Amino acid sequence: MTREQYILATQQNNLRTENAQFYPVGIYGWRKRCLYFFVLLLLVTMIVNLAMTIWILKVMNFTVDGMGNLRITKKGVRLEGISEFLLPLYVKEIHSRKDSPVVFQSDRNITVNARNENGQLTGQMTVGADFVEAQCKRFEVKSHEDEKILFMADEEEIVIGADRLRVTGTEGSIFEHSVETPHIRAGPSQDLRLESPTRSLTMEAPKGVHISAVAGEFKASCRKELHLQSTDGEIFLNADNIRLGNLPHGSYSSSTPNSVGPRQTVYELCICPNGKLYLSPSGASSTCQLNSNICLWS
């Protein structure tokens, strides 16, 4: 390049530089102030969130094992102290420590539900202030040692599997329908009383009914009739003294003029065809036929 060409090119570049416009680069004015304000607000928010997070971790006692009274172990979740649940709790098993019981407490009722795979309710137990209610197909109470059924109830029957059922109420036990049991016994030094105030009392057994009062007396009383019936056997009364009180007395009248004698002290026991018993003054022969008017009026 010659000198004249260099000078000409240099003059052209200078002219282009002088004619070029300069534009500022960056954020200036109110935009810059707004950006700084938002950055400062974001920084303050982050500091507040960090402080709140640290405070929550401190208050709730978060550790690597759990939170507060809640501990996460290999066997499950462990709660220590009193815990409140505001929503339903779904667990597989709940058990207490070896040295303390499990206490469920509520201001109202406590309800335990059991559901099947489809979510349908299969069993429910409610503990209220005045009642305990269980709804299920079968309710069982078993012993701890041999898992013997102590009590079982379903729609068809109620089974009491204990060796002894004791009713300690002063009014005894009231049954509206029939009762089937092999043995009824009163407590020591207490009387056994079977009573039906407004209806009849019936005792039946396929192989006999045995009533025994070892140290006391046996008494059967009723308002109307007392029936002792044996279809294929006999009624056997075995005692040193057999007394039949309040039997009607038949009058004795003979055809002989010497009918009036001393006061009668010996009587004959007579029976009517309908089974009624009465007393007839004894004589040299049977006097039951002479007092048959009692059988006619009975």
Rank of each mutant, 00 (worst) to 15 (best):
R3N: 07
E4H: 14
Q5A: 11
N13C: 01
N14K: 10
L15R: 12
F22N: 12
G26T: 03
R31T: 08
K32L: 09
K32W: 00
R33Q: 14
L35E: 08
F38V: 10
L40P: 00
L43N: 10
V44I: 11
T45S: 15
A51M: 09
I54Y: 15
W55M: 10
W55K: 11
M60D: 07
M60R: 08
T63S: 15
M67L: 05
G68N: 13
N69I: 01
R71Y: 12
I72M: 15
T73Y: 03
K74S: 12
G76Q: 09
R78W: 10
I82N: 13
I82K: 15
F85G: 02
P88T: 11
Y90C: 13
V91R: 03
I94D: 14
H95Q: 15
H95T: 14
S96F: 07
R97D: 06
K98V: 08
R108C: 04
R115C: 08
N116V: 09
T122G: 01
M125Y: 06
G128I: 11
F131L: 05
E133Y: 14
E133H: 11
A134V: 09
C136M: 12
F139M: 08
L150R: 04
F151R: 01
M152S: 15
M152L: 14
A153C: 01
D154M: 08
D154R: 13
V159R: 09
A162E: 02
A162N: 03
R166F: 08
V167A: 02
T168H: 00
T170G: 06
E171H: 08
G172L: 13
S173A: 12
I174K: 05
I174F: 07
E176V: 12
E176G: 07
V179D: 05
T181M: 11
H183L: 12
I184G: 03
R185E: 15
A186P: 04
P188F: 10
D191S: 13
R193E: 12
L194P: 02
E195Q: 07
P197V: 15
T198P: 00
R199G: 00
M203D: 00
K207Y: 11
V209D: 05
A213R: 02
K219P: 00
K219I: 13
S221F: 01
C222K: 00
R223E: 04
E225W: 03
E225M: 03
H227V: 09
H227T: 09
Q229N: 03
S230V: 14
G233W: 05
E234D: 04
I235G: 01
I235F: 03
I235Q: 00
D240C: 00
D240M: 01
D240N: 02
I242K: 07
L244N: 10
L244T: 06
G245N: 15
P248K: 15
H249R: 10
S251C: 12
Y252N: 06
S253I: 13
N258I: 14
V260D: 11
Y267R: 06
Y267S: 09
E268S: 11
I271F: 03
N274W: 02
N274Q: 00
S282Y: 10
C288F: 11
C288H: 06
C288I: 07
C288K: 04
S292M: 06
